[in-house]
Design a protein around this nucleic acid. Structure first.
Lengths: 207, 207
DNA sequence: ATATGGTTTAACCGAATGGTCAAAAGTAGA
DNA sequence: TCTACTTTTGACCATTCGGTTAAACCATAT
C-alpha cells in the first residue's frame, strides 16, 4: 500500500466516520462523504465496495474504541473502590472527547442488532466476571454481590457514565433552561458517580 | 370529523408510529407506512402534509408519553425513599411495555435537538425542583443533597431506569452469551435499582 | 335522481441516491 | 521513452423516494 493510497483511504475513512456519526447510516449520503474527503464519489466504491461496507468498517472501529475503554479496569492492581473511581474519571473524560459516540453506537445497534453480534463474540462475559471475582473476591463477598447482581451493578455503572451522553440532546436543552452548564455537570459527575456507586455498595454488605 | 375519517387518520398515525420507531425518521419510508395502514400513499399527504409533519406528530406524542411517566412521582404523599421505589417499579414496567421508546426518543433528539426544544419549554425544571424540595425538605438535608447535586441524582435515576432499554440491542446479545435472560434482569432491576439508589443516598448524609 | 363536498385511488413527476464504467491521469520500472 | 499498472475522474444508469394531480368513489342533503 503506497503512501498516497493510505492517505486517500484514511481520509475517506475519517470523513465517513464524521458523517456517519453525525447523520447515522440512513441519513448519511455517499456524496457528502466524498465531498468531505475532497474526492470523487466513485473513489468511495473503489476503496470500499459499497455504502454498507464503508459503514461496517466505521462501525466496527468505533465499537472497538468504545469497548476497549472498559478493559483498563482489569489491569489495575487496586481496590474495587479505587477501580470504580478510576473508571468513572477515565471513562467520562474519554466520552467528553467523543461525546457523540454513545448515541451513534446505541442507535445503530438497535437499528441492526446483528451488526454487534460478531463483535461481541470476541468478548467472553463470563471470563470477564471470573477475572473480577478473582481480583476482588473478598470485597464482593463483603458487598454481598453475587453473580446475578453483577449484571445489575455493571449496567448501572455503565448507565451512569454513558447515559448523559446518550441523552445529551435533551440534557443540554434542560440545563440551558435552568441555567446550568453541561460541562460543569460532567466534571462534577466524575467524582459524584464514583462516590454514589461506592456508597451504594457499602450499604449492601452482609455485615 | 367523521368516524371513518378518524379511523383512517388514527390508523395512519398508529402505523407511522410503529414504522418510525422501528426505522427512525431517515430509515422510514412513506410507502411502508401506507402499506402498513392498508391505504394509498397519497392519503398520507392528505391527512399529514408531508413526511416531516407526520413524523413531528408521532414524535411529539411519543415524547409526551415518555415525559408524562416522570410526573406521577409528584402526586405521591410518601417518603422520598418510597417515591424512589415507586418510580423504578412503575417506570421500568412502563418501558417493558414500550421497550423501543427510549432509543427512538434519544436518537431523534440527538439527530435534531431543535425538535425537543419547544416541547421542553412547557416544563419548568426549577419548579420541578422546588416542588420536590418543599415535599422532602428534611430528607434532602439529611441526605446532603444540594441544588447542584440534584441534577446528578435525577440523571442517575433516569440513567439506571432507561439505559437498559437504550442499550437493549447490546444487552440482549451479551445476556444471551452468558446464559442470562433480559426479562429476568428487568424484573430484578425494579427492586435492585431502588435499593441501590437509596443506599447511595443514605451513605451521603451529613450526620 | 342529482348535486355537493369530503375521501381515496392510480398514475405520474422530478429530484436524489447508490452504484457503474470507460477513459484520463499518475506512477514506476525497463 | 515506452509499457504496465494503479488511482482518480466525469458522465451516466436504474431505482427509489417524497410528493402531486386529476379523476373516481361515496355518503348525505335537497
Amino acid at each position: 500500500m503506497t503512501d498516497i493510497e493510505k492517505q486517500t483511504e484514511e481520509r475517506i475513512f475519517e470523513s465517513a466516520t464524521e458523517i456517519f456519526i453525525e447523520k447515522g447510516m440512513d441519513g448519511a449520503r455517499m456524496q457528502d462523504i466524498a465531498d468531505h474527503a475532497g474526492i470523487n464519489k466513485a473513489l468511495l466504491h473503489y476503496y470500499y465496495r459499497s455504502k454498507e461496507h464503508l459503514f461496517e468498517a466505521v462501525f466496527e472501529k468505533m465499537a472497538a474504541v468504545m469497548f476497549s475503554r472498559f478493559s483498563p479496569v482489569f489491569d489495575e492492581k487496586t481496590s474495587l473502590e479505587d477501580k470504580i473511581r478510576f473508571f468513572f474519571r477515565e471513562h467520562i473524560s474519554f466520552l467528553q472527547k467523543n461525546p457523540r459516540l454513545p448515541a451513534f453506537i446505541l442507535n445503530e445497534v438497535n437499528r441492526n442488532p446483528a451488526r454487534i453480534k460478531k463483535l461481541i463474540q470476541r468478548y467472553n462475559i463470563n471470563e470477564f466476571w471470573n477475572t473480577l471475582e478473582s481480583q476482588h473476591h473478598d470485597e464482593l463477598i463483603r458487598y454481598n454481590i453475587r453473580r446475578e447482581k453483577m449484571a445489575q451493578l455493571m449496567t448501572s455503572i455503565a448507565a451512569i457514565s454513558i447515559f448523559p451522553f446518550a441523552a445529551r440532546g435533551i440534557m443540554e436543552v434542560l440545563f440551558e433552561k435552568s441555567g446550568q452548564d453541561f460541562n460543569d455537570y460532567l466534571e462534577q459527575r466524575k467524582d459524584f458517580a464514583a462516590e454514589f456507586v461506592i456508597r451504594a455498595l457499602k450499604g449492601s454488605g452482609t455485615e
